[in-house]
Nucleic acid binder design. Structure first.
Ligand SMILES: [Mn+2]
Ligand SMILES: [Mn+2]
Ligand SMILES: [Zn+2]
Ligand SMILES: [Zn+2]
Lengths: 148, 148
DNA sequence: GCCTTGATTTAGAATAATTCTAAATCTTGA
DNA sequence: TCAAGATTTAGAATTATTCTAAATCAAGGC
């Protein structure tokens, strides 16, 4: 009997998180997560689908949505909704906020957040505050240059 | 010749803002804004449409979208996107943030924000930061009570 | 190993949300 | 009064997401 093949750290991490939510590690979920890590430009479900197909031509759109939902559910991916368009996905689970270019729609990670404590937000009695989402709006370097 | 009829402050405010953006004050735009002020529960375009129809049965969905866009453009209404569902609209132009119940989807105004200064956000060179959007996630009183 | 059971994937249909188009209507200002 | 442009409208078109039911897959019991 062969010993279990050593797993890449990201894969075992993936498996752990999925297992904790009662979900299985499947090639599709692996591929979707890989796509997100390859280019962290906060793609939409549709973009993930197109990129995932390169190495897995038989994957379907429904599966991409399923996988994204599974990854979000088990805490490996964040959903990012910034405008009226399609939802975007982010595999960076470090505490961070998003800079959104209101002109071209590009999204950047900003490795800085505002904690509930330092924000000193006072919410009315009865509410339960779980986390604070911060979105920075403005212009990306390209658009800012053109705007002058 | 009659003197101009005195306008309600909200109407003249509406007109001023629209005019500043080169837009006209129309009954439909007035009605849409009124609907938003009547019940500040952050309705979707569809909900605005249904409510607007009560007093203006001939208004169309396209017009509701047009009016909402016009009001957003001239700074009288804020767009609020919090999840994968439809965009919501808010006529409260005071600086405030939104509490979103991740369970039932209800939205509440929280009259407190984090200014770019006190947040002390450091954005990379070249970016132009215009404003910070803060969304508080958690459970509303009803859902928090049931969650126990 | 073989079978049962439940999880997952899949294609495609269905639905929801938004945008587009072109014609009709309204407003403004010459 | 008229021309030009803005706005509204219905409905088509598009985009985004969810649903459905059948096929496939994987794990655990025997
Ligand atoms: Mn991110
Ligand atoms: Mn609000
Ligand atoms: Zn940009
Ligand atoms: Zn709730």
């Amino acid at each position: 009997m062969r010993t279990a093949s050593p797993k890449a750290p990201s894969e075992s991490n993936l498996n752990t998180h999925l297992a904790n939510s009662g979900l299985r590690l499947t090639p599709q979920r692996q591929r979707v997560h890989e796509v997100l890590r390859e280019k962290m430009d906060h793609p939409t479900a549709d973009q993930v689908f197109l990129r995932a197909k390169d190495k897995m031509p038989e994957i379907s759109m429904a599966t991409v949505y399923n996988c994204l939902d599974a990854l979000v559910q088990c805490g490996l991916v964040r959903q990012v909704t910034l405008d009226r368009g399609a939802t975007r996905y982010c595999p960076n689970m470090q505490d961070h906020s998003h800079f959104y270019c209101d002109n071209c729609g590009s999204v950047y990670d900003i490795l800085q957040t505002i904690s509930p404590e330092e924000a000193d937000i006072k919410i009315p009695r009865g509410f339960r505050l779980d986390n604070i989402e911060t979105n920075l709006h403005g212009l990306c370097p390209d658009c800012a240059a053109k705007a002058k």
